[in-house]
Design a protein around this nucleic acid. Sequence first.
DNA 1: CCGAATCCAACAAGATACTG
DNA 2: CAGTATCTTGTTGGATTCGG
Lengths: 131, 131
Amino acid sequence: MGKPHKTKQLDPAAVCRSSDPMAVRELLTKIGDKWTIFIVLSLDILGGRARFSELERAVPGISQRMLSSTLRTLERDGMVIREVFPEVPPRVEYEMTPLGKGLLRPTQGLVDWAKENWEQVRKAQSQYDER
Amino acid sequence: MGKPHKTKQLDPAAVCRSSDPMAVRELLTKIGDKWTIFIVLSLDILGGRARFSELERAVPGISQRMLSSTLRTLERDGMVIREVFPEVPPRVEYEMTPLGKGLLRPTQGLVDWAKENWEQVRKAQSQYDER
DNA sequence: CCGAATCCAACAAGATACTG
DNA sequence: CAGTATCTTGTTGGATTCGG
C-alpha cells in the first residue's frame, strides 16, 4: 500500500543484507526439526533442568537415539549444559543456559501465533483441498 | 529458581497441554524448511506482492521446482494468494494475505534473536568442536 | 513465462540390539 | 541409567526435461 514503488530490478542480495537470513534459516532449521522444540519446552517446564530419563518421559514418542543426538546438538550450540555425575547407576542432567532461555522468548511469540491462527490455517487448507 | 519444585512423575502429555506444541511444530516445520522464510521475507521486501520471476531473482539459488512447490504450500496454508493473468506470455503474481503478514511479526522476533545471538552460538560451537 | 513431471542423491530419523 | 551402533526407510530437494 504505502510502500515505495516496486523495483523492477531487485538486487539479488537485497534479502540477504536486510536481515541476515542465512543465520535465521540455520536457526529455524535447528529449532524447526522434529524434536528440538519439544525438548526445549519440556526442559523449561521441568524447571530448566532435568535428567535424560525425565526428558524421555516428558517427550512422548521420542527415541533414545533422537533424544541423545538432539541434546548433543543443543549442547554444541550452547543452549544446554550436560553434567555427568560419576555414580552407579549413572546420572546425567541437562540444564538450560541463559542463551537457551533467551531463545525461549521469541519462540513463545511463534507459539502464541500458532495458537491464535492455526485454526485459520487449517480452514484455508481444507478449502484449498476441496478444489 | 523460583519455580515450583521439580515433579518426579511428569504427566507425559503435560507438554502437549501447555501450549499445543503439535501445531507449533507443524508451523516450525513449515517455516523452518529450506526456502519458506526467504520467500516470505522477499515478498515482504518487494511490497507484499511479486511475480514468479521476481521472486526467482530475489531468492538466489532457488530452483523453479522449490519456488513453485513452496509457493503452493504457502497458498494452501492461506499465507499467499496466487493470481493468474490470462496473457501471453503468462503472468502470475503472488500476494501476501493478512494471515501471512501476521506471521511476519513473530518471525521477526526470531530474526532479531538470531542477529543478536548468532555469534555466541558460533563461539559455543567452535569451543565444543575443539574437544 | 510459469510452471509440471520425472529421476535421483543426500540426509533425517525409526527400529532394534547391545554396552559401561 | 544413559547412552552407542547398525540397519533400514522416508522425506527433502537438486537437476533436467517438457508443456501451455
